[in-house]
Amino acid sequence: MNKFLEALNSGKILLCDGAMGTELQKRGLPTGACPEEFNISNPEVIKNIHRDYFIAGSDIVETNSFGANRARLKLHGFEDRVKEFCFAAAHLANSVRPNGKFIAGSMGPTGELLEPLGTLSEKDAYNIFSEQAIALEQGGVDVLFIETMMAPEEATIAVKAAKENTKLPVVASMTFELGNAGLRTMWGIDVKTAAQKYTEAGADVIGANCGKGFDEMIAIIKELRPLTDKPIIAQANAGIPEWIHGMSVYTETPEVIASKAHEIINAGVNIIGGCCGTGPEHIRKIKEILDRYFESRI
């Protein structure tokens, strides 16, 4: 069996990393630059981020490949470098991987609308995700993380492309926000429908990432847990940043999220980590909580 699934089935709660995108911005990614190109031009920065997360206690780190698909890279004129960027992404994470830890290949949305609302055909979307998934597998990742999905069709296509073209387990999450209609993606998909779609498509782990902070994530996991037997992933962001005294500030600091992370764990997650705005310090806090959680159970 795949080592990653083995670890997951052992009953351990796996700790993922925090954000890559916002961490890169902090460490010098110029506004508007292509984050995945940094794998080639600034490999040390990427390695340091991965290393910091491993030191903070992450069992899994995600490769810097969220936007390394043909559709997204096209915005930078890099559409023919999918393989190169994905290889480098996997290689960089592998080069700092401690024994027994895992590398997840990150796959985000195309950023385009599918037909008939937009111009992207299902077939093209399938090919775009297949290309990325294959490149990440060849680069040496242990698992694929399909994340920040909001449109059910695109989400399903991404999971199928990953399952049908690689041997890797697939972890699939969507992004929900709480509104008058409850927890929904921007496409209006509720938690139950998301779980159904991902399960049908063959995802091994399902869950949520990004969104609007840790409180909403608690609500999402509470809603999702009774709906599925599958392992669940939760990667909350540190809220929506606020503009305070001329600076952009994420209000959900490591201290603020500590007790909330505890609630997410109690709600029954199997993989926990962070998204936009969370950094190594957030992960260190969650690690402390996880350690205490397991001590108290022994």
């Binding site: 609302l117 449109a151 008058n180 209609a181 929904r184 993606t185 921007m186 496409w187 209006g188």
Partner: peptide, 15 residues
């Protein structure tokens, strides 16, 4: 605005 409809419905109406 009131979350009664979502992005796809808006786009379909726009069309």
């Amino acid at each position: 605005r009131d979350n009664i409809i979502f992005v796809p419905q808006v786009l379909i109406s726009a069309r």
